[in-house]
Amino acid sequence: MTRAWRMVAHTHGGPNVIVREDFDPGLPGEGEVLIVQEAIGLNFIDTYYRSGLYPAPLPVALGSEGAGHIAAVGPGVTGLAIGDKVACASGLGAYATHRIVPADKVVIVPEGVSTSDAAAMMLKGMTACYLAEDMVALAPGEVALVHAAAGGVGSILIPWLRDKGVVVIAHSGSAEKAAKVDADHSLHVPFDDLATCLRDLTGGRGVDVVYDGVGKDSWAASLASLKRRGMLISYGNASGAVQPISLLDLSRNGSLFVTRPTLADYIVTAQELARTADRLFDRMQRGIVKSAIGQRFALSDAEQAHRALEARETTGATILIP
């Protein structure tokens, strides 16, 4: 087997703590498969584990999503074989040339979807899937605000929602990014002015739901943009974690609903994972959503990739190539 190596953090901190090291992945055990990875997805959650915002034992083997081909199958595995094109977006350790994962966390990548597209889409695409399909039943004509619209999740979530007939108001961190977003309304305004803009666009009503992956900086604007009994879905912390809130703020702003979901709770079983992945691949094959890979970095340049991501210099998805 070709020498295996990975990118890890032996201490928490900035991007400079990411280092390369050789390792022996070993052979897959009961119910496991060994994947030789061809592409790895870069996600904001990777920076949370690197910085220590999300706890994990040190050293942290970074990364959650990747795609490639199965090189070995452990005892008891059915439905998967050596040579299968597969993807996985579970656990840690994706920043590696080789990865052993539980077989029930792996999905087969269908024809017409490349390993690069799968690696770029699995985590972000399945996140967009549960946000659009499982969180709240939006009807055609209802209005959604999507923050970080040009980002990895936003760039998938917006066409997914629009395909359902939802009116999408997109908000981006720069005028350049806003110009690239295909939404019913694509905005770049300061957070302090956003709620006023939203009220103007909705005739004073506000939006039915806010999809907020920004966190601390956008929190107040998101609450102020909602209609009475609207829902704020806070699914990320790109600007930092939201500070503790008072439930009275929700009642004073119109009996609002707030939830803080995570993908892991929507793909707990193999059946849930397969259903979510199937809905994503279906929309990819029909051209409703696209991987929109904006950047490719060598896996060995993971430090530079993290710097670009945290500086908001990326657009769409970013992948790492071993």
Rank of each mutant, 00 (worst) to 15 (best):
L58Q: 10
S172A: 15
G141K: 00
D134W: 06
P59Q: 04
A61T: 11
A149D: 01
A71D: 14
T78K: 14
R162C: 03
I70R: 07
L53I: 15
M135F: 03
A94I: 11
L58F: 13
D117G: 14
L161V: 07
A61Y: 15
Y95K: 06
G52M: 09
V101N: 03
R162D: 00
Y95W: 02
K124I: 02
E176Y: 06
E65Y: 12
G76A: 13
A132I: 02
L62C: 13
V136C: 08
S90E: 08
C129K: 09
G151V: 08
V136F: 12
R162W: 03
G68C: 07
L80M: 07
A89V: 01
V166W: 00
A72Q: 13
A144I: 00
H147S: 07
G173W: 14
V166C: 03
G52C: 11
G173D: 06
I169V: 14
V113N: 09
L62K: 10
P102Y: 06
A150L: 04
S51E: 08
E65Q: 13
A119C: 05
S116I: 10
L53Y: 15
V86L: 05
A175K: 15
L161E: 05
T97W: 09
E133C: 01
S90D: 14
H98I: 02
V73T: 10
D163H: 15
G76I: 09
A89S: 15
T127W: 07
V77T: 06
V113Q: 08
S116R: 12
A119N: 04
S90A: 15
A118C: 05
V146A: 01
A96Q: 04
R99K: 13
Y54P: 00
A72I: 05
A139K: 14
S174E: 00
A144Q: 05
D104I: 03
A128M: 05
V136P: 00
E133F: 07
W160D: 04
L123P: 03
Y130M: 04
D134L: 07
G63V: 12
G154C: 00
L80D: 04
P110T: 02
L53H: 15
A139C: 10
A144C: 05
H171K: 11
V107A: 13
A89Q: 12
A128K: 01
A89P: 03
A72S: 14
V167F: 11
G141H: 05
L161H: 11
A118W: 01
A139V: 08
E176T: 11
A175C: 09
G151K: 08
L138T: 01
A120S: 10
P110L: 03
A119Q: 05
V143A: 01
V60S: 10
I169T: 10
P102V: 02
C129D: 14
T115F: 13
A144R: 00
G141N: 02
T78M: 11
I156W: 06
L131R: 07
H69P: 01
S155L: 01
T78D: 15
V106Y: 14
L53R: 15
G151N: 11
W160M: 04
P59F: 11
T78F: 12
H98G: 06
C129W: 13
A94H: 09
V168W: 02
R99L: 14
S172D: 11
S114I: 06
I156P: 03
S51Q: 12
S114N: 09
A120P: 05
I169W: 13
T127E: 06
Y95S: 08
L80N: 04
A149V: 02
V167M: 10
A72K: 12
S114M: 04
V73Q: 12
L145F: 00
